[in-house]
Simulated assay, not measured.
Amino acid sequence: MPHAKLTIDVPEHTWIGEISSDHPELLFEVVTSIPGEDSGIGLVRLTATNPLPVITDIQTRDDVDALELLWKHEDEALLQIQSSNPLLLLPVWRAGVPLTTPFDIQGGEATWKLTTSTSRLSSLREHLEDLGIGFSIEYVREIDASQADQLLTDRQQEVLRTAAREGYYRSPRDATLGDVADTLDVANATCSDVLHRAEGHIVHWFVEEHMDGQRRE
């Protein structure tokens, strides 16, 4: 499972691309974003010597449908912005790739970090190219099995490790679900729920990494 860092050229004909290119001292931090039917909504933290003129400038842009100032303190402001031209994030949404947030935009460039499957990373590259968005890949690193914290919570790892150690996954089984629950001192239902979620994450990861990619090839 690759972990990647990309530098993206923010399209200049978007409000954030034009403003950040014209004012490289400004820092935009995209806290989160969601797609709408014909637009995108983002929560953006702005850092500037004087945020108010920048906020006024953003409001005048044709592709900004709505702007709400959630809070302002000295050189920082938190904005909720709805844009009819969320071009920067379209490749991410179309490829189904979850970005690590927050991510920064400064000087007309966005810095993205993401962890996804090889097939979805390839799809992201294709969508970026199709939309004419320039990018460079800083690195792509494989996450090995020892980095299970990227896949499972600490609690899920503990319960799964205990189940394996007790023999729950041997055939025939050396331990029942009740035995595993007793070892962990939790209810059977709790143990079953945690195991089920952990197993689900692992199965989905395996299918996406090792089966979906082979079918596409």
Rank of each mutant, 00 (worst) to 15 (best):
L87D: 11
L88F: 12
L88H: 08
L88E: 12
L89K: 13
L89Q: 14
L90H: 10
L90K: 15
P91I: 03
V92R: 11
V92K: 12
V92C: 14
W93A: 06
W93K: 10
A95N: 09
A95G: 02
A95R: 13
G96H: 15
V97H: 13
P98A: 07
P98D: 07
P98N: 08
T101V: 15
T101Y: 15
P102G: 06
P102C: 06
F103M: 03
F103T: 03
F103A: 03
D104L: 13
D104C: 06
I105D: 01
I105P: 00
I105C: 03
I105N: 01
Q106H: 07
Q106P: 04
Q106Y: 07
Q106R: 13
G107Y: 08
G107W: 05
G108Q: 04
G108L: 09
A110N: 11
W112V: 03
W112T: 02
K113T: 08
K113G: 03
K113A: 06
L114I: 12
L114F: 09
L114S: 06
L114Y: 13
T115C: 06
T116H: 07
T116F: 09
T116L: 05
T116K: 08
T116S: 11
S117I: 09
S119Y: 10
R120K: 14
R120I: 07
L121P: 00
L121R: 12
L121Q: 02
S122V: 06
S123T: 14
L124K: 04
L124V: 01
R125T: 00
R125E: 07
E126F: 08
E126L: 04
E126W: 07
E126H: 08
E126R: 11
H127A: 04
H127K: 10
E129T: 08
E129Q: 03
E129A: 05
L131P: 00
L131C: 04
L131E: 01
L131G: 03
L131M: 03
L131T: 05
G132Y: 04
G132D: 01
I133R: 02
G134P: 01
G134D: 02
G134C: 03
F135C: 02
F135D: 02
F135V: 02
F135H: 13
F135K: 02
S136C: 12
I137W: 06
I137A: 04
I137T: 13
E138V: 09
E138S: 10
Y139W: 08
Y139K: 07
R141T: 01
R141Q: 09
E142C: 00
D144A: 00
A145R: 12
S146G: 10
S146W: 10
S146A: 13
Q147H: 13
Q147S: 12
Q147L: 10
Q147I: 05
A148K: 09
A148C: 04
A148R: 09
A148N: 04
A148D: 09
A148H: 05
